[in-house]
Nucleic acid binder design. Sequence first.
DNA 1: GCGCCCTATGGTATCGATACCACCACTTGC
DNA 2: GCAAGTGGTGGTATCGATACCATAGGGCGC
Lengths: 334, 334
Amino acid sequence: MDRKWVTMGDVARAAGVGKITVSRALRTPSKVSADTLEKVQKAVVALGYVRDETAGALSSQRSRVVGALVSTLEQPVFASTIRGLEEGLSAGGLQLLLGSTRYQPEKEALMVSTLLGRRPDALVLTSSDHTEDTRRLLSGAGLPVIELWELPETPIHAAVGFSNRAAGHDMARHLIASGRRAPVFLRTDRASDTRADMREKGYLDALEGHAPRIHSLPPREDQGGPDYGAEGLAQVLQRWPDTDAVICVSDALAVGALCEARRRGIDVPGALAVTGFGDIDVAGAAALDLTTIRIDGAAIGREAARLTLAACDGEDIRGRRIDLGYQLIRRATG
Amino acid sequence: MDRKWVTMGDVARAAGVGKITVSRALRTPSKVSADTLEKVQKAVVALGYVRDETAGALSSQRSRVVGALVSTLEQPVFASTIRGLEEGLSAGGLQLLLGSTRYQPEKEALMVSTLLGRRPDALVLTSSDHTEDTRRLLSGAGLPVIELWELPETPIHAAVGFSNRAAGHDMARHLIASGRRAPVFLRTDRASDTRADMREKGYLDALEGHAPRIHSLPPREDQGGPDYGAEGLAQVLQRWPDTDAVICVSDALAVGALCEARRRGIDVPGALAVTGFGDIDVAGAAALDLTTIRIDGAAIGREAARLTLAACDGEDIRGRRIDLGYQLIRRATG
DNA sequence: GCGCCCTATGGTATCGATACCACCACTTGC
DNA sequence: GCAAGTGGTGGTATCGATACCATAGGGCGC
């Protein structure tokens, strides 16, 4: 299974030039004569040479790798973010080293340190809730850090996202304005899901005299699919039978809650409004037609890639907060 | 923004030992006395040292990185596969370098060569359709290659997946056995989606005299969400008005087709059966209750991680084909 | 015609870790 | 009591690329 890799020296010998010339021919072709360039390119093809980027990283102190951490890949919106990020970065010649934290700050701390071991040129974090350890590591590392999906007051360096609080507020406001009297906020109770926390805060902001009703489902291994939402609605109705709206913290929960409501013969949206968050692709399908908040995940990723490339280019990105907003999509369920 | 990284030499000086001892303390603690170990660990914490893995990779010729390519992350089943893979690998001390090919073999060729530049210890490919260039690169590179989601007759080295052909066959068989006379196979027409091709072959195998009806939707930028499935059903019904079953190549298409059928007032499953592929989490929700083929994406990832770790341990994995099967989930739509 | 600069190229040191070998201080066996 | 082992430690070369400096050769201005 083992084979020696072709090295730059091999290519140099084959092309009859010095190896530094090979390096230049590949990295900065403009600094090499057309003649030499061709010889080198021929030798590269003939030998099937692939440059060892790790060696290059060591000597140039630039790895051309960006570390990224997501809470989970299994929510399609995050997957879209990663796609946008990957596309943007690879266009700029950067590669993506990926990890997931599963909403656990301790896991994040571990992963950050693992990623730093690869000496990435930048770090992208899909979260803004970090342990003290993480913050210390990051501030000591001296590399650009970009936070996504939230807009903290004082980001570590820069952030790309939207206001979860405002979004939660708008949704609650919308329901109250259309006559709902007893809206419930349904969420999972993960220890550190700051996005859910902020949406909940927004919900509370919007109540204006209505009684706050927050129902938290205990965290589970799976990330909270529709089954969980169905269960959640059952609990909510038992706890507050007069509920007339359920604001779910995610579309997955909302789909479950909606189906459970229909199963029980509850009139949606007549007797009960159900709303989601994220606008996953099935949310708009006719059988569901869910009212929700649309987030453009891919755009967040693309914007993050733009910022990253700028930072790698030496630009100072500290303090930048890019708000990409959200959109309340009013459909049939509320 | 720049700061010098702490090196192993710094730690060695602080701990009053040689730097090779530091290396051993971190990599193989058992070979160092308890006393020295403690001194080193203290120095590591005090200085906030993070080992430079790229330098380590260069000298040990083992990068502890695994390159992975997926067709897309936006199908939840692939996201699950990546989660399974990542969990398995990180438990074994390996990191994941991720790229996506968007179902384009040329993009795959490019990404493989980019990944090889990082000198990964293994490669995981979510596809079995490779260009000649890719095959040459891979065979020359001399590293373990694991293909997922398909079971080619002769994998490059090893494969983990299931028979897409058998799954397509079983679904068609199931519908015909329950009395359907004119089943249609609905798919998107991507140039190189071999999984869809195999499912289609399976469908054809099962027809036994019934007329083959395959409707291909032209490829589009988005990966084919429910909207596309709705459009697809409309086209199918126009082309073959007597259609009594639609076998969709993915759940996303099926959800769209199902909703479109209901919108038109078609009796499902009475007049029309609709089936999907993948069993995404909303498929089972009451409002959809889709008949589909369940694939355990996470298990595929975990099994791939196991194989990868074995291969990195020196085991010869050539010729292994691990069949994880699938499950026909019969629900309300057929 | 001389000196200057600019382009193209090569040599050598270097990045930060690990492999390999050497060595020392003990213990163990006979 | 001495050779042979063993566990712990350090020195030095090395991995494969790039940075930095040096150099050769030509064109051009004065």
